[in-house]
Design a protein around this nucleic acid. Structure first.
Lengths: 334, 334
DNA sequence: TTGTATGCGTTATCAT
DNA sequence: ATGATAACGCATACAA
C-alpha cells in the first residue's frame, strides 16, 4: 500500500491541502510547517500519485514515443535521446513500437492520447492524412519527416547528400548509383531529390537510380548485384543498414570495397565501425535528434499559444572511413 | 477536449454508470441500450481515461521496463519483445533507461511505481540489496539475472557455455581464453562458473581467465592483445559486442580469424552476421526473453497469490558462422 | 435493468 | 497561513 497525502497529513498533524502545498508551492506555507511536512513526507516515503494529479491538472507528466522498430539502431538511438531528455525534464516516456506497420500507428497513438501530454512520432511511412488526423487529437512532434505545418525535427538532407557527393567526386567518381528506401518513405524522396539536385550542377556527374528497396540489410543484399551491373564506381545507400547489405553482397561476389566500388551510407549508426571495411557515412548525432524532439514538444506543451520554432534541421556530418576510395578509372595506369 | 463518459451518457440519454457498464460488462445491460451506448460512444470517439480508471481499480494498465542502455542491441531486442507482448495484452509500456548507472535505477523505479502495475527489470549490475528493496515497493520480474527468490526470466548459462566449449573442443581447441564482463555483472559470474565447471570435466582443456572488461566493443578491443599473448587458440567472449571488439583488434594486429584464433560470442545479436568474418555465437531469441517476462509479470499481477512459475530458463542455441575453425595445432603438418 | 451516490488521490478555490 | 470542500473521470456498491 502506497502512502498517500492523507497519511502524511495525519502524521504531520496538518490538513491534506497543506501537504499538497508544501510540496508544490513551498513559498505559500510557513517555514516551520513546511519543514515538518517535508520531513515526515520523506520519512514515510511519500510519492504523489501522478495519475490522480494528472486527473485534475490535465497534465500527465508523460510523453509518448512512437517508433517503427526499436531494434533498428536508428530508432533505438532516437529513443535513447528522447528518454534521457524527458527524464531530466521530469517526464516519463510511454513507448509504442508499430512493428513497421503504419496502419497500427493510429490505434497506438489514440490509445496513448489520454495518458500523455504530447507525442513524438517517428513515422517515415505513414501517409500524411493519418498524421494530420492524429495531430488533431494530440500534440505531436515529428522526427525525421515533415507533414503539413506540423512541428518537426528533421535533417538537412540536401546538405548531407551534397557532402557525400562532393566526397565521391573528389575521389574521382563520376557515376554514382543510388539505392533508395521504400517509396512511401519521406526521406527517401528527399534524398533522391537532393541527389538529383546536387548532381545536376555538374554535367560530368551521372546518377543511376536503382529504385526502391527495403531499408534493412536485406534490401542492400537485394540491390548489390544491380549496383555491380550498373557499372557505377560508387554507390550511395538510403541508410547504413542498406549499405551493410551492399558490403555483404559485394564480398560474396568478390567485388572489392573500396578498390572496385566505393560505398557511402547515411545515418552513421554505431555499428558502422564494425564492418570490414568500416563504412563511410553521412550522419547526425541521432541521440540529439531525440533530445531536440523533446525540447520542441515540451515547449509546445507548456505554451501551446506561441510555438517558438516549428522546425529544426539538424546537420549531417560526413565521416570518412574505409569503404570509400579513389575511383578505379581515376588512375587508369596504376 | 477529449470526450468523457458523461458526454456519451448525455447524448445516449442514459446515466453515466450505464455507459461504464455497457463497455466493461456488456452482459449487465439490455441489448438495446448496450447497442445504443456502444454506437454513440464509437460515434463520438470516446476513449476511457485510463488514469481515472486506474485510480479506482488500482490497476494502471501499464507495465514498466527498466534497461541499462537502449542502444545496446541486447536490451533493444528485449524491449521490443516486452513492448509487443504488452500491447497485445492491452498494456502500455513505460520506459526507463538508466544509462548504465545502477544508482539511478532506484529513483527511476520509485518514480514509475505509481503508474505501473508491475515492472520488468534488466539490471545486470545493480546490487541484490537494492533490487530486493525495490521488489517490496512494486511487483518485479527480473530478466537475465537472478536475485533472491524473485521471479526471473534467465538463461541456462551452463548449457550455453557447454555448447560453445563442445564446439571448440570438436575443432581441436584445448586452450580457451575467457574475456569476462564487469565483475558486478550477474551473468559474468554465472558464465565463468559454467566455463570452469564444463572444462573441469576434461583434463585436456585449459581455461585462461583474462579478467573483466567493459561489456562493449571497447572492452573487446582492450582485451585483444591479452588474448593474443595468452597463447590460446580460441577465445570465448562475455557477449557479442566484446567479441566484435576482439575481431577488430585481431584484424589490426594481423591475427587471422579463424585461422589463428577462433572467436565465440554470446547473445547472437542481429549484427553478428555483419562482421567479417561473421561471428559464431551462442544466443537465445532475445525478443522471446522480453515476451516471457511480460507473461510472467502479467500472471503475477493478475493473481498475486499463486505465482505459477517463478523461474524460466531460456535455452541457448549455438550458431556457427565464420569466426570459428580448426585449431591451428590440430593439423600441424598442413 | 438502470440510476444515484460514493470514493480513488490529488490540486484548486474559497473561506477562515 | 491554513483548512474545508469541490472537482477531475471513472467504477462500483447500493437503491430503485
Amino acid at each position: 500500500m502506497p502512502v498517500t497525502a492523507r497519511d502524511v497529513a495525519r502524521v504531520a498533524g496538518v490538513s491534506i491541502s497543506t501537504v499538497s502545498r508544501a510540496l508544490a508551492k513551498p513559498d505559500e506555507v510557513s517555514p516551520e510547517t513546511r519543514d515538518k511536512v517535508l520531513s515526515t513526507a520523506r520519512g514515510m516515503g511519500y510519492r504523489p500519485n501522478l495519475a490522480a494529479r494528472g486527473l485534475i491538472t490535465g497534465r500527465t507528466g508523460n510523453i509518448g514515443l512512437m517508433v517503427p522498430d526499436l531494434e533498428n539502431p536508428f530508432f533505438a538511438a532516437v529513443a535513447k535521446g528522447v528518454q534521457g531528455k524527458a527524464r531530466t525534464a521530469g517526464y516519463a516516456v510511454v513507448l509504442a513500437d508499430s512493428d513497421e506497420d503504419p496502419s497500427r500507428e493510429r490505434d497506438l497513438v489514440l490509445g496513448m492520447a489520454s495518458q500523455v501530454d504530447g507525442l513524438i512520432m517517428c513515422s517515415p511511412r505513414a501517409p500524411d492524412s493519418v498524421i494530420q488526423q492524429l495531430a488533431d487529437e494530440c500534440t505531436i512532434v515529428l522526427v525525421n519527416r515533415e507533414c503539413g505545418g506540423l512541428p518537426t525535427v528533421s535533417m538537412d538532407n540536401l546538405d548531407g547528400i551534397r557532402q557525400a557527393v562532393n566526397h565521391l567526386r573528389a575521389l574521382g567518381h563520376r557515376t554514382i548509383a543510388w539505392v533508395g528506401g521504400p517509396v512511401t518513405s519521406w526521406s527517401t524522396q528527399r534524398r533522391l531529390e537532393a541527389l538529383k539536385s546536387v548532381t545536376a550542377q555538374d554535367p560530368e556527374l551521372e546518377v543511376i537510380d536503382l529504385g526502391s528497396f527495403q531499408p534493412y540489410v536485406s534490401g542492400g543484399i537485394s540491390a548489390g548485384d544491380l549496383v555491380i551491373a550498373s557499372g557505377a564506381t560508387a554507390v550511395l545507400a538510403y541508410n547504413d543498414l542498406v549499405a551493410f547489405g551492399l558490403l555483404k553482397r559485394f564480398r560474396q561476389r568478390g567485388v572489392r570495397v573500396p578498390e572496385d566500388i566505393s560505398v557511402v551510407g547515411v545515418d552513421d549508426i554505431p555499428m558502422s565501425t564494425l564492418t570490414t571495411p568500416e563504412l563511410t557515412s553521412v550522419g547526425i548525432p541521432l541521440v540529439n535528434c531525440g533530445r531536440a524532439g523533446v525540447d520542441m514538444l515540451l515547449s509546445l506543451v507548456r505554451d501551446p499559444s506561441t510555438p517558438p520554432e516549428h522546425h529544426h534541421d539538424l546537420t549531417f556530418r560526413l565521416v570518412v572511413r574505409e569503404s570509400t576510395g579513389p575511383a578505379p578509372d581515376a588512375h587508369p595506369g596504376v
